Computed example of a mutant assay.
Amino acid sequence: MAGLPAAGKSSVASGLGRALPAAVVAVDPLEAAMWRAGVDRGQPTGLAAYLVAEAVADGVLALGQSAIIDAVNAVEAARQQWRELAERHRMPVAFIEVVCSDSRVHRQRLERRSRGIVGFEEPTWEAVQQRRAEYEPWTDHRLVLDSITGLASNVTTAQEYLARAARLS
């Protein structure tokens, strides 16, 4: 899963995880756990959270199960990390990017959301806009879902996409 904060990726990831079933490995709670453990926020905890997510997903894949990584994945290096993980396990990788085409709705979602991640401070709208400006172009195929579309429809579309991807691998 990929997409800006509050675009709707966690909702799609959760729905997809229940439907498949597949383990959902979310980066934000991992980063928050590091902060709660006393790791200084000035340290590269974002990068560390991606590496911890990779380690967790590695264990899931080693069991022959599927994993959904719930992370912004804004840069090519992060996307390559997941490609390499899938390759090590000889499993297919499929990217799904969730966007919110209505910036007013996106901002409202961000400002109103409370995910209950202890110690995690939601980013500001300005921080999300900065991430948008830094978002690197995609180099491979992905499914793009607009969260303005209903969640159930997006989960179904994602399931169909993953089924096609699995058949082609």
Rank of each mutant, 00 (worst) to 15 (best):
I96Q: 04
A94H: 10
D102Q: 10
A53Q: 06
D146M: 06
V52K: 02
S147Q: 08
V72E: 03
R132S: 11
E122P: 05
V93H: 07
T45G: 07
A67Y: 02
P137L: 07
A74M: 02
E84M: 14
I117W: 04
V128W: 07
R131L: 14
R79W: 09
I69E: 06
R90A: 15
I148F: 12
Q81Y: 08
F120E: 15
D146H: 04
D58L: 01
M91I: 07
I68H: 05
V118D: 15
P92Y: 04
R142N: 01
D40K: 01
R83D: 08
R109T: 02
I148H: 12
D102W: 08
V98Y: 04
Q43Y: 10
P137T: 06
P44F: 02
I96A: 00
R41I: 11
G64L: 03
L85I: 00
Q129F: 08
A133H: 12
E136N: 03
A133W: 05
A77Q: 14
Q81A: 11
I117M: 02
Y135S: 03
I117T: 03
E121V: 15
G64R: 01
S103Y: 10
G116Q: 12
V98G: 00
G42K: 08
Q129T: 06
H141E: 14
V118T: 13
S103R: 13
E121Q: 15
E111Q: 14
E136P: 08
R88E: 06
A67Q: 01
G59T: 09
L85F: 05
G64K: 08
I69W: 04
V60T: 05
L47F: 12
V128M: 01
R131N: 09
G42R: 09
S101D: 09
G42V: 04
N73A: 02
P44L: 00
A94V: 09
S114C: 14
E54S: 03
D140Y: 04
V105A: 13
E111V: 02
V118W: 10
G119D: 11
V75K: 11
A55M: 07
A57M: 00
P137Q: 10
W125Y: 02
F120N: 11
R115P: 03
E121M: 10
G46W: 05
F120Q: 13
A62F: 00
V60P: 01
R112S: 15
A55V: 07
E121T: 15
D146K: 00
D102C: 09
E134H: 12
Q130N: 12
V56I: 14
R104M: 12
D140W: 07
Q108P: 01
